[in-house]
Amino acid sequence: MTIHFVIQMQAALEAGELSRGERRVVQFVLAAPDEAMRLPLAKLADAVGVSEPTVLRCCRKLGCSSLQEFRIKMAGAEAIGLPATHAAIPVGSSVSEIAARVLDFSVSNLDNLRRQIDGAALQRVVDIVAGARSLHFWGNGASGIVARDAQQKFPLFGIPCVAETDSHQILINAASLSAGDVVVVFSNTGRNSSMRPSVAAARANGAPVILITSSVDTPLAREASEVLSIPTLDNTDIYTPTISRIAALCIVDILSICVAQTRGNTGALKMKKMKEAIVKVFRDDAPAKMPGKCSEKT
Score class of each variant (00 low, 15 high):
204 A>H: 12
33 P>Q: 08
66 S>F: 11
276 E>Q: 13
91 V>N: 06
237 D>K: 11
213 T>H: 00
293 K>M: 14
117 I>D: 04
24 R>P: 06
95 V>C: 10
40 P>H: 09
245 R>I: 03
181 D>M: 07
17 E>L: 15
176 S>R: 07
158 G>F: 06
29 V>T: 14
166 D>L: 12
256 S>G: 04
12 A>K: 09
17 E>A: 15
40 P>S: 11
234 D>K: 04
193 S>Y: 01
263 R>I: 12
136 H>F: 03
108 S>G: 15
234 D>Y: 04
269 L>C: 07
17 E>P: 02
95 V>T: 11
255 L>R: 03
159 I>C: 06
73 K>E: 02
132 A>R: 12
10 Q>L: 14
203 R>E: 13
246 I>N: 13
273 K>W: 04
145 I>D: 03
266 T>P: 00
158 G>R: 10
159 I>D: 08
202 A>M: 04
233 L>H: 03
279 V>N: 00
125 V>Y: 00
32 A>N: 12
2 T>E: 15
262 T>I: 07
11 A>G: 02
239 Y>T: 08
249 L>T: 05
241 P>C: 13
21 G>P: 08
138 W>Y: 10
279 V>Y: 02
244 S>G: 08
251 I>W: 02
222 R>T: 12
38 R>N: 03
22 E>Y: 12
21 G>T: 05
247 A>G: 10
145 I>Y: 11
116 Q>R: 14
70 F>P: 05
109 N>F: 10
14 E>D: 06
190 G>F: 02
97 E>P: 01
48 V>T: 11
281 V>Q: 11
260 A>P: 03
121 A>D: 07
15 A>L: 12
38 R>G: 00
158 G>N: 12
42 A>Q: 15
237 D>F: 08
99 A>K: 11
104 D>Y: 04
45 A>G: 10
198 S>Y: 01
205 N>D: 01
202 A>D: 03
31 A>I: 08
113 L>A: 01
206 G>L: 10
248 A>C: 09
142 A>C: 01
60 R>I: 09
265 N>R: 11
52 E>K: 15
238 I>C: 00
15 A>P: 04
112 N>F: 15
145 I>C: 04
242 T>C: 05
53 P>Q: 13
28 F>M: 14
53 P>N: 12
259 V>Q: 05
290 M>N: 13
108 S>C: 05
237 D>M: 08
136 H>Y: 00
52 E>L: 13
121 A>G: 01
284 D>V: 15
162 V>M: 00
281 V>F: 03
250 C>S: 01
231 P>C: 05
243 I>G: 14
199 V>L: 07
256 S>D: 10
220 L>M: 09
289 K>G: 07
288 A>H: 11
287 P>I: 04
2 T>I: 09
59 C>L: 01
216 V>N: 01
81 G>T: 02
194 S>N: 11
142 A>T: 06
205 N>M: 07
97 E>V: 15
244 S>F: 05
158 G>Q: 09
233 L>P: 02
17 E>I: 11
48 V>R: 03
37 M>F: 06
3 I>P: 08
112 N>M: 07
22 E>M: 15
216 V>R: 08
